[in-house]
Amino acid sequence: MSETHAHLLTLLTGVAALLIAASVAGFILQQRLSPDGSNAVIENLNARIKAWWAMVVLLGIAFMGGRAGVVLLFALCSFAALREFATLTNARRADHWALAAAFFLVLPLQYYLIWVDWYGLYSIFIPVYAFLLMPIISALRGETDRYLIRIAEVQWALMICVFCVSHVPALLSLQIPGYEGRNVLLIAFLVVVVQMSDVLQYVWGKLLGRRKIAPLLSPSKTVEGFVGGVASATLIGAGLWWMTPFTVVQAGALALVISLMGFFGGLVMSAIKRDRGVKDWGHLIAGHGGFIDRLDSVIFSAPVFFHLVRYWWSLT
């Protein structure tokens, strides 16, 4: 346990040093280029850095709270994400009970199953049981207008916001020989790699970005940002091997998978936003739009990371 704490402390120190450097840089940029707060890019950058601090502090507190803290934190993230997602759906009065069930039954139950570590049920609860239950509730109301779209939206919302997100705390239940009691570091590894990949794609894109990679989905994403961001995040992941059960090469390979899934997750969620005609999912996090805007890459990488590690490293 003390080794876990030492590793967490090392990681937190590194992250804090990075954020302090970013804060100082942001402050200097603001003094020089935007003293009256008129430069939108720099104001946005500083808002992002502030939000990063809040996120790191929250994650730190959750890690100190152990299993309960982590499960609770991600349950709350799921709640906020589901609230954003449901806001943009076609759900109407006939779906009231289906949505109420999604928020107040399915979500708490999924996290309860994560908490009691019932893998056999939490891995199929939403894809099987909720998938069949939700359309039944909506069908019983007899409203058939746009029925398929409505039930598909509710199921998608649950898969994205609850099922996928819940695979982050599920990492705690993996049993890796020689790695007992240190699973929280797997979460740290995943979150750090995903977020560094996001940030570095943004930075590389701003520095070298020329060719747009998906102009119809996300005009700010470039080929240069994508390659630079994924490559550097892979290197960072490999450099974090000491806190994982992986070798350097394995850590790098997993970081590559995480970064790629994160990138494509961002694209998919952009496509949904375009479809619904909004720029951000919400306004909860200053500078970051909504919860889903920050979580999209974690959402897509968490289940894949979980299953890869479970298949090759875990006993259960």
Binding site: L82, R83, E84, T87, A91, H96, A100, F103, F104
Partner: peptide
């Protein structure tokens, strides 16, 4: 009005 339609007593969380 979508959070709490008439006659429903459980609110749906929506922004």
């Amino acid at each position: 009005n979508r959070v709490m339609p008439k006659g429903k007593f459980i609110p749906i969380p929506l922004i």
